[in-house]
Design a binder for these strands. Structure first.
Length: 452
RNA sequence: GUGGUUGUAGUUCAGUUGGUUAGAACGCCUGAUUGUGGUUCAGGAGGUCGCGGGUUCGAGUCCCGUCUUUCACCCCA
């Protein structure tokens, strides 16, 4: 016997029952993106490594999937190249799988900058690949649903991101969640405030672990990273500020008196004010100065969405990156965007049991038959049903009625149409509702009317 | 990339200190029921115990490697 084939680590098949749920998620998200004026875009699964490398930091480069050159991939390599994997890599690999959707998007914008209408709003729903160690809610192949705007610094974009997140969650019936907001300038100000200007990268890494390792853990980590205990204490003067959002902002403004932080706070205030002007409340929103987010290209506001009381990482995140397209030789276009991780959303919604029960896009009607004559007769009836837009099928082989009906049961087909010699003779058919067993007798026209 | 964890029928899991022919439930197939499904009853099929090596008279069980699962770190959707 041949050994069973397995999937590569961290990848999955999506069986029909799973796909129905995933499609529901994707179409919900897509529908909201479209409503806010975003246009679809797709880019190739693979990009040149020159596009991908260096955009995600050292860690990101390690997690990139690299593709061997086609043909004799060792052709360009010399013996001494084998002494260093980085040198060898350049000789044997020129392409890699995309790591996220933002960088390919930036590449696209840089390449087509003169043909686009600005502000350019695009959405993109495609898989990405990272050679990370799989864990719960972490896969090596997963989907991102991105929506980005380039070509404007307007904070209306940030407003709309918040609105879209809320709208998607509302449609998905998710009620207990938090949209965390921060600003790169606030982090910069924080770094300055605690006496270590310019060290916000290290500060971010430590702060980001607050949920996990607690106040003392963060203080310890800061000291290990070369900050001192006084600066750590000072940090928590700011992070210790709690309260209603309005109150929190004014306290932050009074405490974090550094210029950069003031700018960041002003931006957030503007965004929230836009929300008020849109007749919306500030529910689900939390300003969190410790929110860091990994990607180094963010320059302004930062978002992250967590579903509360669910053991899963963030399900959505994003931010403003005012100079991403510049690295591809284009003019520096400001941009802002965010992304839903639908694999995690799926896991969360499954755990919360919030998937609608009526997602089965099953056949509406199955034609069952008793003998060769009724089987043959069934084709014209089937054609007629389909002509009237009724999703239907005929049991494709001669089989006992029991088997045919069991097929309908297993496939959740709600209606069964019986065809036998009696029916052919009289032109009166029996339609059975498989849920409650109720039967309806009538002509083909009656049946079609009922099924529509 | 580092350290732990997991793998037995289609599925969820039993399987004693290493000891004959590896079990259960559900599912699947057949029949009771040749023009009527779900229920019930009777019967049946299905496993070289993830894969490869080793120790042993003997391995599902112990050891090593590998793949997979899962968890922590790193990082992240």
């Amino acid at each position: 016997m041949i050994t069973k084939p397995t999937l590569p680590q961290g990848t999955r098949d999506f069986a029909p029952d799973v796909m129905l749920k995933r499609n529901y998620l994707i179409s919900t998200i897509k529908q909201v993106f479209v409503k806010y004026g975003f246009l679809p875009l797709e880019t190739p699964a693979m990009e040149n490594l020159s596009v991908l490398t260096g955009k995600y930091g050292e860690e990101g480069d390690r997690l990139l999937y690299k593709l061997l050159n086609t043909g004799d991939f060792l052709k360009k390599a010399d013996t001494e190249d084998f002494n260093d994997s980085n040198t060898l890599l350049k000789k044997i690999s020129e392409k890699g799988l995309r790591y996220d959707l933002t960088v390919p998007f930036a590449r696209f914008v840089a390449a087509n900058q003169h043909d686009l209408v600005y502000p350019f709003k695009r959405y993109q729903i495609q898989p990405v690949w990272r050679s990370d160690r799989p864990q719960k809610g972490r896969y090596r192949e997963f989907y991102q649903c991105d929506a980005d705007v380039v070509g404007t610094k307007s904070l209306v974009c940030e407003l709309e991101i918040i609105q879209m997140i809320r709208e998607v969650f509302s449609l998905l019936q998710i009620t207990d969640y938090t949209i965390k907001i921060n600003h790169r300038e606030i982090i910069r100000g924080l770094s300055e405030f605690i006496g270590f200007p310019g060290r916000e990268a290290e500060l971010s890494v430590a702060m980001d672990k607050l949920d996990k390792i607690g106040v003392d853990g963060v203080k310890k980590e800061l000291v290990e990273r070369g900050f001192n205990i006084e600066s750590a204490e000072k940090l928590f003067i700011v992070l210790g500020i709690t309260g209603e959002t309005k109150e929190k902002i004014s306290q932050l403004k009074n405490t974090l008196t550094v210029d950069s932080a003031q700018q960041g706070l002003a931006d957030i205030e503007t965004i929230l004010n836009y929300l008020t002007l849109s007749d919306e409340n500030w529910n689900h929103i939390e300003i969190d100065p410790s929110l860091a987010r990994g990607l180094s290209y963010y320059t302004g506001s930062i978002f992250e969405v967590k579903i509360n009381n669910i053991q899963i990482g963030s399900v959505s995140g994003g931010g403003r990156y005012d100079n991403l397209t510049g690295i591809f030789g284009g003019k520096d276009l400001p941009g802002v965007g965010f992304s839903f991780g639908i694999d995690r959303l799926y896991d969360a919604i499954l755990e919360l049991d919030l998937f609608p029960t009526d997602l089965v896009e099953s056949t509406n009607c199955l034609i069952v038959h008793f003998d060769q004559e009724s089987f043959d007769y069934g084709f014209s009836v089937l054609k007629n049903l389909r002509k009237n837009g009724i999703s239907s099928e005929i049991f494709p082989e001669m089989a006992k009625l029991k088997k045919q009906l069991q097929y309908a049961n297993k496939k959740n087909i709600p209606n069964v149409l019986f065809i036998g010699s009696e029916e052919i003779k009289t032109g009166i058919f029996t339609l059975r509702n498989m849920t409650d067993g109720a039967e309806l007798k009538g002509t083909q026209a009656d049946i079609i009317n009922q099924l529509k």
